[in-house]
Design a protein around this nucleic acid. Structure first.
Lengths: 207, 207
DNA sequence: CGCCAAAATATGACGGTGTCAAGATTGATT
DNA sequence: AATCAATCTTGACACCGTCATATTTTGGCG
C-alpha cells in the first residue's frame, strides 16, 4: 500500500511525498517567500486544495520540510562525532564548522527550521508540530551529549559548577547566532566563515 | 517646517510619525504577522494607500521601526559601558545579560530588527535601507569597541592572534543566538535566561 | 487676495494568498 | 457488482500589497 511507491499511483501517486519534495525544491530556489500552496499545487499538477488532504495547514507542510532538516542535521552531527580518525579537540572544531556550514549551504531550510513561523504558538495540527518536535528534540539532546563529553575531558574553558545543559545551550547559541547573522547577511561576510569559526573554537577551548 | 510638530497639523498631522508609533504598537501586541498596512491605516484613520506617501513600501515602514530599535539598543550598550560604578568584568557580564534581556523584553521588535524580512536583498527604497544601515552599523561598531577593551585588558579567554572584530563577531553571535533560541521558544526556557547568560560569561572569561 | 503647483489623501481595481464548503471521481473492500 | 471512504476539483470568501487615477488641501507667489 504505502510500499513500492514506484508505479502504484492510484489517484496521483503518493502526493504527500511529492509535495514535500517539490516544496523543498521551491524553498531552495527562491526562499520561503516563494513557497505558496497554490504555486506548489500548480507545479505538481494538482488542484489548489489537493494538498489539504495530506497536510492540515501550510504550516503543517512547512513542519514536514523542517522535520527532514533536523533529521539531516542530527545525522551530520552523529557521523562527525563518531568518526575514528580525529582527536576529540578536532571533533569539537568540526562540530562548530560543520554546523555553521550546514546553515550556509541550506540557508532557507535553516531559516525555516529555526524560524518562528514554525515554533511560535500552536497554529497547525498538533500532530504535525509534535512530529517536528520528535525530530528536533533528539537533535538537541545529542548536542548536549557531545558537550558533556567535551566537558568531562576538560576541553572547555569554565570555572564554576559544570552543567552540560547550560554549556550546550551556550555553544548552540553561538553557532546558531553566527549562522543566523551570516545567513541574513547582517554584518558578517560569508567569505570569513572559517575564520570566525576558528576564532570561536579558540575562545571556548581551555588554554 | 519640520520643526514644531506640535500643532502644525495640516492634513492629518505628521502621519509618518503616527504610522511608525502605531505600527510599533501593533508589532508589540500581535507580532509581525498582525502588522498589515490596511489594518494600520484603518487604525490610524486614513485610507489604505495614504501611508504610501510617507513610505515607499511596507518594507520601508518596517525598516523605520527597526531603525529605532537599533538606536535603542545602541543607547543601552553605551550607557551600560560608560557606567562609573561597576568593574570592567561586571560590565562584560552586564552586556551579555542586558542584550539578551532586551530581546526578551521586545521579542517581536528584535525579530524584526534581525530578521531576513529586512536585510535580504534590496527590496524597498534604497534610501530606507540605507537609513537602517546607518542606525545599525554604529551599533555593531560600538560592540567591537567594547570587545577591543575587554581584549586589551586580557579578560577574554583566547590563545592565538587577537582580533577585536572576530571576537566581537563570536560574542555577538552568542548573545544573538541565545536571544533567538529563547525568543522563538525552541529549546530554552525563558525562566533560565539569567543562568544561561551567567554560564556564557563564565565560559568566555579567562580563568 | 487670488491662483496654482505640489503635497496629501481617497477610490477603484488587479493579482496574489490561505482556506473552507460542497460536489465529483476513484480505489479498495465486502 | 455495490458501497464507502479516501482523494481530488471547483467555487467562493476574506484578506493582503500595490498601482493608476481622481480628489482634496496646503503653502507660496504674483
Amino acid at each position: 500500500m504505502k510500499n513500492t511507491p514506484e508505479k502504484s499511483k492510484y489517484h496521483h501517486g503518493d502526493l504527500r511525498t511529492t509535495l514535500l519534495t517539490v516544496a523543498g525544491e521551491m524553498l531552495k530556489e527562491g526562499g520561503i517567500e516563494e513557497v505558496s500552496l497554490r504555486k506548489l499545487a500548480a507545479r505538481v499538477g494538482v488542484s489548489r486544495t489537493a494538498p489539504y488532504h495530506h497536510f492540515k495547514d501550510k504550516n503543517a507542510l512547512l513542519c514536514g520540510i523542517a522535520e527532514s532538516g533536523f533529521t539531516q542535521l542530527h545525522q551530520m552531527n552523529k557521523s562527525s562525532f563518531k568518526a575514528e580518525g580525529p582527536s576529540t579537540k578536532e571533533k569539537f572544531s568540526s562540530f562548530i564548522h560543520e554546523y555553521v556550514n550546514f546553515a550556509k549551504a541550506n540557508p532557507d531550510l535553516y531559516e525555516l527550521m529555526f524560524g518562528r513561523t514554525i515554533w511560535k504558538h500552536e497554529n497547525s495540527s498538533k500532530e504535525s508540530t509534535q512530529k517536528l518536535r520528535d525530530a528536533a528534540y533528539p537533535c538537541f539532546q545529542y548536542q548536549v551529549a557531545m558537550t558533556r563529553e567535551w566537558q568531562q575531558l576538560k576541553l572547555l574553558n569554565h570555572s564554576g559548577e559544570e552543567s552540560a545543559l547550560r554549556a550546550s545551550q551556550v555553544l548552540w547559541g553561538t553557532v546558531h547566532g553566527i549562522a543566523k547573522l551570516l545567513i541574513d547577511g547582517i554584518y558578517t561576510d560569508v567569505a570569513h566563515v572559517e575564520e570566525i569559526c576558528d576564532y570561536a573554537v579558540d575562545m571556548f577551548l581551555v588554554h
